[in-house]
Nucleic acid binder design. Structure first.
Length: 595
RNA sequence: GGUUCCGUAGCUCAGUUGGAUAGAGCAACAGCCUUCUAAGCUGUGGGUCCCGCGUUCGAGUCGCGGCGGAAUCACCA
C-alpha cells in the first residue's frame, strides 16, 4: 500500500506543481492512533515544490489523491501531516490476502541467499557453562533460525577450547587431590565434576602463593614458582609431546565434560552442525603466517618472533608466532578462518563472541585484509554485552557465577510453583505437566535474555528475572494458549470458521491496530536478520500479544452472533497465533498448547 | 592515555530510514473473575531522553565537544 501511495503522491506533485519528486522525499507512515486516518504523508519535504504553507500543500495533494485513487476515501491535514483514510473495501481485500497466506515467513526470503557460518558457544572444557554462555548460545541459535528463515544456508559451528593450561589445572588437581571419582561414582554431572577440581586447584594454588609471599618472595615470582604451577606446566609439555598417560587422562576428563555439555545444550534446545576442537586446529595458521612473511606483509623480529604491523590501520603491533615458533590464539583464528573459507566459500562467517574480544576481531580482519583475502569483509564479529548481576560482574572468586544448569532448574521449578498456585493444568498427567513446566520455565529464561539489545550489557537480577507477568515469555505463551483454547471451544460447539474468505468487515479501531501489527511481521523478521538482533522479534511478539489480549477482552469472539463478524475475529485470532508461534520459534522458544 | 561500546521513569528495558503529545513491564495506589483461561484487562501517579553546541521546517535518534560507566590495549585463550 505504501508503495502505491508513494506513486500517487509523485503523480500528484507532478500534476499540481509540475515537478519531479525524488522517492526518498516521500515519507509514508501509519497514522498514529490519536488521529483519524490510516496512512500519513509527511508534507514538509514537499514544500520546496509547492512553495506554499504545509496546510495548503497537504490539502492540494490530499484532494488530488482522493479524486484519483478509489482506495482512498478521505483525508485530513494537521500541521504538516496529511492523513489519508483508506476505504473499507480495500481493507477487506487486504485482510483476505493476509488470511490466505499460510506461511507468514515466505515474505521474508532474501533475494540473494548466502552461505553463512555461525560460530557460537565456544566453551572451555575446564568449567561448566554459566549465564554468559546462556546468552551466547541463545543468541547464536536464534540467529541461525532467523537467517535460515530468510532463505540463507546457515551452518552452526562450535569450536571447543579443549587444550591449554586451564584444562591441565583440572587434570592435575583431580590426579593429586581426587580419589579417582568419576561422574558415575560421584553422581555428579561431568562438567561440574571437572569444574570442581578446577576450583580446588585455584584454591590450593592460591594457598601456595600465600605461603611464598609470607616467606618473602614477591608476588609475581611466587605465582611462577609455586609448585602446583610448575607441575601444571610440566603436564602441558607432556600433553604437547603426546605422553600417553596424560593423553588418556585428558581424553577421559574431556569426555566427561562433553557429556555434561551435551545435557545442557539439550536443555537449552541448541545444537550444532559441526564441532571443531582446538586440539586439532591449534597448530594451523603457521603456514599462512610464513607465507605472509614471504610476501613482506609481516615482519620478523630479532628474536625471530613474527609480527604484523597494524599501525597504518590505526591498530597496534600484533604477535603471530612466538620466538620458539609456536602459535598464539590469533594464529589459530587466522588458520581456521582460511580453512573454513576454502571449505565452504562462505559469504559470511559470524562469530558470536562477547564484546571483550572486540579488539581481537578487529585485528583478525585487518590482518587477513592485509594478506589480500578479500573475503575477510565477510567475517562478522557478533559482539554481545556481558551479563552482570545487580552487584556487578560475576566473579568466580566470590562465588557469584550463575551456573547454567542451576538456573535452568530453578526457572522450571518456579514455573511449577506458579502454575500450581494458579491452579492450572487440572486433568493433565504428571508427565504432561512436567513438559509444560519445562516449556514455561525455558520461555521465561530465553525471552528475558533475548529481549534486550544484544550489544548492550544487561543486568540479571535473580529475584526479579524469574517473573512470569508482563513483558515475559510466559505472557506470550499464555496469549497463544488462550487462542488455542478459543479454537478448541469453537470445535466443541460446532462453530465453523473460514480461513481465507472475508466478504464483510466490522468497522472497529481495535482490529485495525491488531492488523497493523500483524502485517509488520515479515518486515520485522527481515530487519532482525539485517541487524542480527533477535531482540526486535522478541519485542514485536510482546507487542502483538499485548494487543491481542486487549482485543480478547474488548470483544466477544465465540459469543458474537453475527457470523461474518465472528469469522473475522476468528481469522484475526488464527493469524495472531500463527505469527506468535513463528516469532517465538525464531527465538528458539517452544510453545505449549495449554497452560 | 589510545580504541570500541553504552547512558531514556525509582528498577529492568523498548523506541523503525530524523516526524505529531517519548512507550511497556516491575514496584505503588484504585477498580474488574456466574460469560471464549485473571500468567489477564482498565485507570492514577511517575521524565532536564547525561550536559552543551551544531545541522534541520522538525533531534531520544545525525555531527562535534564535554561528563559518567563498561570492555580492551599479553610471547593467555
Amino acid at each position: 500500500m505504501e508503495i502505491i501511495l508513494k506513486e500517487k503522491v509523485k503523480e500528484a506533485v507532478q500534476f499540481i506543481y509540475n515537478c519531479k519528486v525524488d522517492e526518498e522525499l516521500i515519507q509514508i507512515q501509519e497514522t498514529r492512533k490519536d488521529f483519524k486516518g490510516d496512512f500519513t504523508i509527511v508534507v514538509f519535504p514537499l514544500l520546496r515544490f509547492s512553495k506554499n504553507t504545509p496546510e495548503k500543500t497537504g490539502e492540494m495533494i490530499g484532494s488530488y489523491i482522493v479524486n484519483n485513487f478509489t482506495a482512498v476515501s478521505g483525508f485530513n491535514v494537521i500541521k504538516g501531516f496529511l492523513n489519508l483514510e483508506i476505504s473499507d473495501k480495500w481493507w477487506i481485500d487486504y485482510f483476505a490476502l493476509m488470511a490466505s497466506e499460510k506461511s507468514h515467513l515466505e515474505n521474508c526470503q532474501v533475494k540473494n541467499p548466502e552461505t553463512i557460518l555461525v560460530e557460537y558457544s565456544s566453551p572451555n572444557t575446564n568449567k561448566p557453562l554459566h549465564l554468559g554462555h546462556i546468552r551466547n548460545n541463545l543468541l547464536g541459535f536464534s540467529l541461525y533460525r532467523i537467517l535460515s528463515a530468510c532463505g540463507n544456508k546457515v551452518i552452526k559451528t562450535n569450536i571447543v577450547n579443549d587444550r591449554g593450561i586451564h584444562i591441565c589445572k583440572s587434570m592435575l588437581a583431580w590426579q593429586k587431590f581426587g580419589n579417582g571419582e568419576t561422574p558415575s561414582s560421584s553422581g555428579m554431572k561431568g562438567d561440574h565434576l571437572v569444574g570442581k577440581y578446577y576450583v580446588l586447584f585455584e584454591k590450593e594454588y592460591r594457598a601456595q602463593i600465600g605461603e611464598l609471599v609470607l616467606a618473602g618472595v614477591n608476588e609475581n615470582e611466587a605465582k611462577n614458582s609455586a609448585p602446583l604451577m610448575k607441575e601444571t606446566r610440566e603436564m602441558l609439555l607432556k600433553w604437547e609431546a603426546g605422553n600417553p598417560e596424560v593423553m588418556s587422562l585428558w581424553k577421559m576428563m574431556n569426555s566427561w565434560v562433553y557429556a555434561g555439555f551435551d545435557e545442557t545444550y539439550k536443555r537449552l534446545g541448541v545444537d550444532f552442525d559441526i564441532i571443531y576442537y582446538e586440539s586439532d586446529t591449534y597448530k594451523t595458521g603457521r603456514d599462512i603466517v610464513i607465507e605472509g612473511l614471504k610476501n613482506n606483509v609481516l615482519y620478523k623480529n630479532e628474536d625471530s618472533s613474527i609480527w604484523a604491523d597494524l599501525t597504518p590501520e590505526g591498530l597496534d603491533q600484533k604477535l603471530l608466532l612466538r620466538s620458539d615458533g609456536t602459535a598464539v590464539y590469533m594464529t589459530q583464528d587466522l588458520g581456521t578462518a582460511v580453512a573454513r573459507y576454502n571449505e565452504y566459500k562462505f559469504d559470511k562467517n559470524i562469530y558470536v563472541v562477547g564484546n571483550e574480544q572486540n579488539y581481537h576481531f578487529q585485528v583478525l580482519r585487518a590482518i587477513l585484509k592485509k594478506m589480500g583475502y578479500n573475503w575477510s569483509d565477510g567475517l562478522i564479529h557478533f559482539s554481545y554485552g556481558m551479563v552482570e548481576l545487580p552487584e556487578g560482574r560475576m566473579k568466580s572468586r566470590e562465588g557469584t557465577i550463575v551456573d547454567a544448569d542451576d538456573l535452568i532448574t530453578e526457572m522450571q521449578e518456579t514455573a511449577r510453583e506458579v502454575s500450581l498456585e494458579l491452579g492450572k493444568l487440572a486433568g493433565f498427567s504428571d508427565v504432561e505437566k512436567e513438559e509444560i513446566f519445562r516449556k514455561i520455565g525455558m520461555a521465561a529464561l530465553k525471552y528475558y535474555i533475548l529481549k534486550v539489545d544484544p550489544r548492550k550489557n544487561m543486568t540479571f537480577n535473580p529475584a526479579e528475572s524469574i517473573d512470569f507477568n508482563g513483558n515475559t515469555g510466559p505472557f506470550i505463551q499464555y496469549t497463544y494458549t488462550r487462542i488455542k483454547s478459543v479454537f478448541r471451544k469453537a470445535e466443541q460447539t460446532g462453530i465453523q470458521f473460514e480461513y481465507g474468505r472475508l466478504t464483510e468487515v466490522e468497522a472497529g479501531i481495535k482490529e485495525i491496530e491488531l492488523v497493523k501489527l500483524l502485517r509488520k511481521f515479515p518486515e520485522t523478521v527481515t530487519a532482525s536478520a539485517q541487524d542480527l538482533s533477535p531482540a526486535l522479534i522478541a519485542n514485536y511478539c510482546y507487542d502483538l500479544a499485548k494487543e491481542y489480549n486487549q482485543f480478547y477482552h474488548d470483544y466477544s469472539i465465540l459469543g458474537e452472533n453475527d457470523p461474518v463478524v465472528r469469522n473475522f475475529r476468528l481469522v484475526l485470532s488464527k493469524v495472531t497465533s500463527e505469527i506468535l508461534y513463528k516469532g517465538m520459534w525464531l527465538l528458539g522458544v517452544e510453545m505449549p498448547e495449554r497452560m
